[in-house]
């Protein structure tokens, strides 16, 4: 499905990722974890054509998308939910969803809207509200919905639970898992909340200083006490 091979990337002269290889199969949740500044967001930015790629390749279903502009990659079945400013706060909730759907050429947008509102009913109540007035948790639901309404094959999520209260963290993690199961979407999940990410992930990568230092199942990662303690702040 998604295959990142020997990726070297960054921003201008700032080299961030070194020979990073990551892959994500169909209906799989892959967690990418690591300390602050490890290059997790840069990995997603590189997949999506926002960062500068120096060498290596990114393929989706075998099709090379390396160095394509972001707006072209967005039409290849990948949806990217950014970490921080991930909604248009001056547009209404419905406008946010509609603009995303129309650029994804979704044929029946009203039907898709109803599906989204079934997943996140609170957004239906807020549909005419300016998105900037939503609470943190509602914003995150909207951000994920903006990606989801595009009917993606792969969803790239950059720290979807950052800054949320525990109630919303559990809800968002649960929804991500449901989305994968019910819609057959692959998810690349970059998370600071390692515990929560590993609960739903099929495989995990640990990224430290721009390099992958671990790849394997969440249970294998849990047994790597040194990595868990030194880089993920867990364990003794």
């Amino acid at each position: 499905m998604l295959k990142v091979e020997s990726l070297n990337s960054g921003y201008g002269k700032l080299h961030v990722l070194y020979d990073v290889s990551v892959d994500c199969d169909k209906e799989e949740i892959v967690a990418v974890v690591g300390p602050n500044g490890a290059g997790k967001t840069t990995l997603l930015n590189s997949i999506f054509g926002i960062a500068d790629i120096y060498s290596g390749s990114v393929k989706i279903d075998g099709e090379e998308i390396t160095k394509l502009p972001a707006h072209v990659i967005a039409r290849k079945g990948i949806a990217y939910v950014l970490q921080m400013i991930n909604i248009f706060s001056e547009l209404s909730v419905e406008e946010n969803l509609r603009i995303s759907a129309s650029y994804a050429k979704i044929p029946d947008i009203d039907k898709k809207l109803r599906e989204i509102f079934e997943i996140f009913p609170i957004l239906s109540e807020r549909r005419k509200q300016r998105a900037g007035t939503l609470s943190g948790g509602e914003r995150q639901m909207l951000a994920i919905s903006i990606g989801l309404i595009r009917d993606p094959k792969i969803l790239l999520l950059d720290e979807p639970t950052a800054g949320l209260m525990p109630l919303y963290v559990d809800l968002i993690i649960k929804k991500i898992n449901e989305i994968r199961k019910e819609r057959g979407i692959s998810v690349v999940l970059v998370e600071q909340n390692v515990k929560k990410a590993l609960e739903i992930a099929d495989r995990a990568y640990v990224l430290v200083s721009g390099q992958i230092i671990f790849r394997g199942s969440p249970s294998d990662l849990a047994s790597e006490k040194e990595i868990m303690r030194l880089y993920l702040g867990m364990g003794e």
Partner: peptide, 16 residues
């Protein structure tokens, strides 16, 4: 309007 507010996010939606 989306581009006015956030060009990076607009790009992720496929807006040129």
């Amino acid at each position: 309007r989306a581009c006015m507010e956030n060009t990076a996010l607009a790009q992720t939606l496929g807006i040129n």
